[in-house]
């Protein structure tokens, strides 16, 4: 079973901000994305970079040739090394979502422990970089009117 770990008060983590915490030997980033909280492992599956230190941005798309459009602002983290983009809300890689899917977890079940390099899932024959994602909950605290963010690891 996943264990519930208190991260901070919800009002300490405003939309667009993040907090990196150490839980059970794992570095985990908790992000407030438009008042939803998401937790991902602070390690890029590409080269092990501290992914949660990357720029949080949106998905740049091109509805027409040479048009740039920013969608889903705040939902994408761009790795500080080499620039791979991941969807904070799902852990999916942006550049090749068809071939590179996140290993999905039942939120109520503790994720299997995994090695950084040796545990990629093959989809259509391609290596599958994924970020380990964790369930988060926001619950009332003892303090009047304040809520606490928990991450389930």
């Amino acid at each position: 079973m996943a264990e519930k770990h208190q991260v901070c008060f919800a009002d300490e983590l405003q939309p667009g901000s993040r907090k990196v915490v150490e839980i059970g030997g794992r570095s985990i980033g908790v992000f407030n994305v438009n008042n939803q909280f998401y937790a991902i492992r602070n390690s890029c599956p590409h080269r092990g970079a501290p992914l949660c230190r990357g720029v949080v941005t949106g998905l740049v798309t091109s509805p027409e040739l040479y048009e740039l459009e920013m969608e889903r602002l705040g939902e994408i983290v761009r790795c500080p090394w080499h620039g791979w983009e991941f969807d904070l809300t799902t852990g999916r890689s942006v550049f090749n979502p068809h071939k590179m899917r996140v290993k999905s977890y039942d939120v109520s079940v503790e994720p299997e422990p995994m090695d950084l390099q040796g545990d990629f899932v093959l989809v259509d024959g391609e290596p599958d970089p994924f970020i380990e994602t964790f369930d988060t909950t926001v619950e009332p605290s003892g303090e009047q009117g304040r809520k606490v963010v928990f991450v389930h690891v």
Binding site: T57, L59, E64, E69, C79, H82, G83, N96
Partner: peptide, 17 residues
């Protein structure tokens, strides 16, 4: 292919590897 993974957002009309 590798650079596209990191810099794709600058040329998002490039849809494939």
């Amino acid at each position: 292919d590798l650079d596209w993974k990191g810099l794709r957002y600058q040329v998002p009309w490039v849809k494939r590897l």
